[in-house]
Design a protein around this nucleic acid. Structure first.
Length: 427
RNA sequence: GGAGAGGUGGCUGAGCGGUUGAAAGCACCGGUCUUGAAAACCGGCAGGGGUUAGCGCCCCUCGAGGGUUCGAAUCCCUCCCUCUCCGCCA
């Protein structure tokens, strides 16, 4: 959520910044509601003050044993007036809040102009796409040739956009998770974290998935109203919801592996082949809760931590600075890491690292005590995938395939594979 | 699922329907003392909103939402959460 005070004092400036990302702010509606809010709020507070004064006087008169009837008569109709003012006020606040909750974050100045993926700016490139002496297969063909990846069975069990893996390939998938967690916790200082895979609506509001993106989530039946998490970002970031942290607690750095569940409602027909876009996939998420003045350096650092996974796996990738039209709802700035996929002959997103500045913190009321300030201040939140496991597996399968249908195991993963150097096709 | 206890400031924890937005302790900040530190002592210290050049003043908030009342942390109702015991269960 944006700072409501910013919307009052610099409404046009805010609208201009939001326009960069293609969002039209209804400034007239906001200005009108704001004006009304102010009037009704003042009126309400006057009435409340009157009530408080009168009640206090009645209490004092009663204590002295005086006749309080005249005082009671004087406030006879106050209750009704107050009640109607209060309900009007809360209705306006609710309406205003509804608008505000649907307004995305302001893109940072360093975010390039643009309206789509096409306008993202490449920051750097690492590694070189491998040369094959044959026509490289995509991961579906590689997996089928191994006999260890099967979407037909998954479709029988559940439906489309799921995968069954067996044998060494399933182990490689698990190895990636272990490797990523070990790297982030033992070398980059993240605290390994285990969280619920279902969350309540408050948590989803906190990180910005609700109220706008409910159709991208799996909601559970029943009275509880829980949702399956679309990313570990939701439970992990919300750990600090409604908290006031001490300065020495910051930064908090969490690494968390979870499955992620996404309805992919808006992506019919997109990436239907293979396991690029699944309803269920594993991810190791990196989350940092930081002082406001450190969030942009934290974003650089965290992105570097995600990159390190790709470097250790020796997977070629590039880093993109997303343009204003392509960053997510809650983000002020986002870097995507895109890995080279020989089967598609292009770079595909494998990690998305964002600085949300105080946008999520304000929704969550996550604050810290800044020694230099009287009042608690909002923290900043930064997160990124380190990495998306399913897509990393795809990248390994495609980049490490050989003509005989085998997959070489990247050196960094061999300790997690019982020392195996290759995955062989089933006989 | 059954029975009971409880949700109050950063934390612990008091709180007859009427200066209680809240005792006390801890933590924290400032000061005295000290070569320095600790201890001791003195003082400050909830969050949010409005208004003001500022001092300040006003409003809201004691799990959430309703209700009773001139007045609710305190009484009533609904819901949520936590803890203990029993049952069931990986």
């Amino acid at each position: 959520m944006l700072d409501p005070r910013l919307l009052r004092s610099e409404l046009e400036e805010v609208a201009r910044k939001l326009k960069r990302r293609g969002f039209e702010l209804d400034t007239d509606a906001i200005a009108r509601l704001e004006t009304e809010r102010k009037a009704i709020q003042t009126r309400t507070q006057e009435l409340q003050n009157e009530r408080n004064q009168s009640s206090k006087a009645i209490g004092q008169a009663k204590a002295k044993g005086e006749d309080i009837q005249p005082l009671l008569d004087a406030v006879a109709d106050l209750g009704d007036k107050l009640k109607s003012a209060e309900s009007r006020l809360s209705a306006i606040k609710e309406e205003l809040d509804g608008i505000l909750m649907g307004v995305p974050n302001l893109p940072d100045e360093s975010v390039p102009e643009g309206s789509s993926e096409e306008d993202n700016v490449e920051i750097r490139r690492w590694g070189r796409p491998p040369e094959f002496g044959f026509e490289p297969k995509d991961h579906v063909d590689v997996g089928h040739a191994l006999g260890q990846m099967d979407s037909d069975t998954a479709a029988k069990l559940t439906g489309s956009r799921f995968t069954v893996m067996t044998g060494p390939l399933a182990r490689l998938h698990r190895a990636l998770i272990q490797f990523m967690l070990d790297l982030q916790t033992s070398e980059h200082g993240y605290c390994e974290t285990y969280v619920p895979y279902m969350v309540n609506a408050d948590s989803l509001r906190g990180t910005g998935q609700l109220p706008k993106f409910e159709d991208e989530l799996f909601k559970l039946e029943g009275d509880l109203g829980y949702y399956l998490i679309p990313t570990a970002e939701v439970p992990v970031t919300n750990m600090v919801r409604d908290q006031i942290l001490a300065a020495e607690d910051l930064p908090l750095k969490f690494a968390c592996h979870t499955p992620c569940f996404r309805s992919e409602a808006g992506s019919y027909g997109k990436d239907t082949r293979g396991m690029i876009r699944q309803h269920q996939f594993e991810k190791v998420e990196l989350v940092q809760i930081v002082r406001p003045d450190r969030s942009f350096e934290a974003l650089e650092e965290l992105t570097g931590h995600a990159e390190e996974v790709l470097r250790r796996l020796e997977l070629p990738y590039r880093m993109m600075n997303l343009c204003a039209g392509d960053i997510g709802f809650s983000a002020a700035k986002t870097y995507d890491l895109e890995v080279w996929l020989p089967g598609q002959g292009k770079y595909r997103e494998i990690s998305s690292c964002s600085n949300f500045v105080d946008f999520q913190a304000r929704r969550m009321q996550a604050r810290w005590r800044n020694p230099g300030e009287k009042k608690p201040q909002l923290v900043h939140t930064v997160n990124g995938s380190g990495l998306a496991v399913g897509r990393t597996l795809v990248a390994v399968m495609e980049n490490y395939q050989d003509e005989g249908g085998r997959i070489a195991v990247p050196a960094a993963l061999q300790p997690y594979m019982g020392g195996a150097s290759h995955i062989e096709p089933n006989r």
